[in-house]
Design a protein around this nucleic acid. Sequence first.
DNA 1: CTAGTATACACTGTATGCAGGTATGCAAGC
DNA 2: GCTTGCATACCTGCATACAGTGTATACTAG
Lengths: 247, 247
Amino acid sequence: MKNTLEFVSQTGRALLTLREMLLKGEFAPGERLSELALVARLNVSRTPIRLALDRLAHEGLLTGAPSGGFIVCEFTLADIWDSIEMRGVLEGTAARLAAERLTDPSELLQLREYQRQMDAIPNNTMDDFARYMDLNESFHIELISLAKSSMLDRSLKHLTSLPFANPSAMVFARSKLPRAVELMTIGKEQHHAILEALANHQGTRAEAVAREHAALSRRNLESVFVGDSKILSCVPGASLIRLETVV
Amino acid sequence: MKNTLEFVSQTGRALLTLREMLLKGEFAPGERLSELALVARLNVSRTPIRLALDRLAHEGLLTGAPSGGFIVCEFTLADIWDSIEMRGVLEGTAARLAAERLTDPSELLQLREYQRQMDAIPNNTMDDFARYMDLNESFHIELISLAKSSMLDRSLKHLTSLPFANPSAMVFARSKLPRAVELMTIGKEQHHAILEALANHQGTRAEAVAREHAALSRRNLESVFVGDSKILSCVPGASLIRLETVV
DNA sequence: CTAGTATACACTGTATGCAGGTATGCAAGC
DNA sequence: GCTTGCATACCTGCATACAGTGTATACTAG
C-alpha cells in the first residue's frame, strides 16, 4: 500500500479522480469501464489508469470481468449495514485488545485528552458538530493504535476503504438530523465508558461498548433512510446502492 | 479481485510464482525487489510483474517503498498470533450472524453432512488427518456462507490472503505432532457445539465456540514453536518471520 | 582524512505500439 | 421471423522505448 504522496504521480491522480467519479455516481453499477474512454476523460495514459483500476478492484469498488477489464460493483442496503456491523466487531476487538494489553496508565493520556476536548464542545452549532466528528475520528484512531495489532489495523483499513463503512462518510447525513445533539451525547457517554473499561482492564466491557458505539451509527443511518430519502444522496457512493424498491 | 483463471495470463503466472518465491524464502525481509531482476528470472515483461507486485502489496506480503518500488514485509510472532486471533473474531462473527440469520433448519444440512463425514473418520493414519483438514475447511467455508454477509466474506478473504492466518497453512506442522489426534477430537466437539448453537439460534454461544476453535490453532502453533524449531520451516513464509532471538 | 558536491548509473514511472481475444452486428439459412 | 454463423471492429493484455528522479560513488576541497 503506497499511501505517501500519491497525489503527485499520474497513478495517484487517476486513482483519486476515478474514486471520486465512482462515488459521485458518474458510472452506473454493472457498467463496464473502458480504459480508452478514461484516457480521453483524464488526459492520462492507459498504464496509470490500469494501475488505478486494479487498485480500485482491490478496494472493492470494482470487480474484474471474466473476459478482462473491470465493471462497477453494486451494493445493497444489507451490505451497508453489514459494513457497520463489521466495523463494530473490529473496533470492539480493538477495544478489548487495548484493555488486555494496556501496560501503563499513561498510555491513555492521549485518549483522555480527546475525550476532554469532546466534552468541552458546547454542541450548539454545526461547526461544533464538525469538530466533534474530527475528534471522534482521532479518538478511534488512537484506540486502534492502543490495540497494538498490525493485523487488526490492516483489517480495519481494508474495511473502511469502502465508503459505507467509513464513519466520517455519514457526517453529512447526520448533521442534517435533529437527533444530532442527542446522538452526540450518547456517543460521549460511550467514549467515557470505553475509557473506564480500558483503565480497569475490562476487555469484555470495552468490546461490548465499542460494538454498541458502532450500532449507534447504524441506528442513525436507519433513521436517515426512513426519513427524507433525498438525504441518502448525500452519502458518498449512494448511486452504487441498489434499493430494494427498484428491484 | 480477478480470481478466475488467472493461471493462464502472464500476470497470473507472475503473481503465483512471486508469491511462491516469497513464501519459500527466496527474498529476505526488507529486501527491495527490482523489477528488472524479476524480468530476467521470470521471463516476463515488466508490466505483468508490476501488476503482480502491486497485488502482493495489497495482500500484505510487500509494501511500497517511499521512493517507489516494493520491499519485502517482515512479520513477527505477534503478527501470527494476532492473525489467528483475528480469524477467531471474524469466524466467531460468522457463526453469530449465521445463528441470528438462520431462517430454515434445512440450511444446516450441508454443514451436518460435513460433520457426519468428519465424525466417521477413524483418525488413525496420516491420510485420515488430511481428509479431516479438507472437510474442516469445507465446514468453515459453509459456515461463512451461512452468515450471508459479503462484507464479512471480504474481510475474511483479505485476512487469510496472508499465509499465517490461513488455517490450512498449518497442516504440515500439525500433522507432525503427536497431539494431532487429540486436537482433532477437540475440533470435532467444537464443530458439534457450533452446529447445536446454530440450530437453536444461540448467537453468542456460536460466536464464543468459534473463537475458541481458532484458539485451538493458536495453542497448536505455540506447541510447535516451543518444540522442534525445525518444524517452523515447514510453515509457508517462515523466512519472513523475525524471531525474537535474532534481534 | 573527512565531508560535501557533482556526475553517472540504475531504476521506476509513463507512454505507445502490437497482437490476441471477445463481443456485436449483419446476413443467410432454416 | 428467428436463429446461427461469420466477419469486423474494438478493447484488453503485453512488451518495449523513453524520460525523470533518486542514489551511490568518486573526486575535490578544506
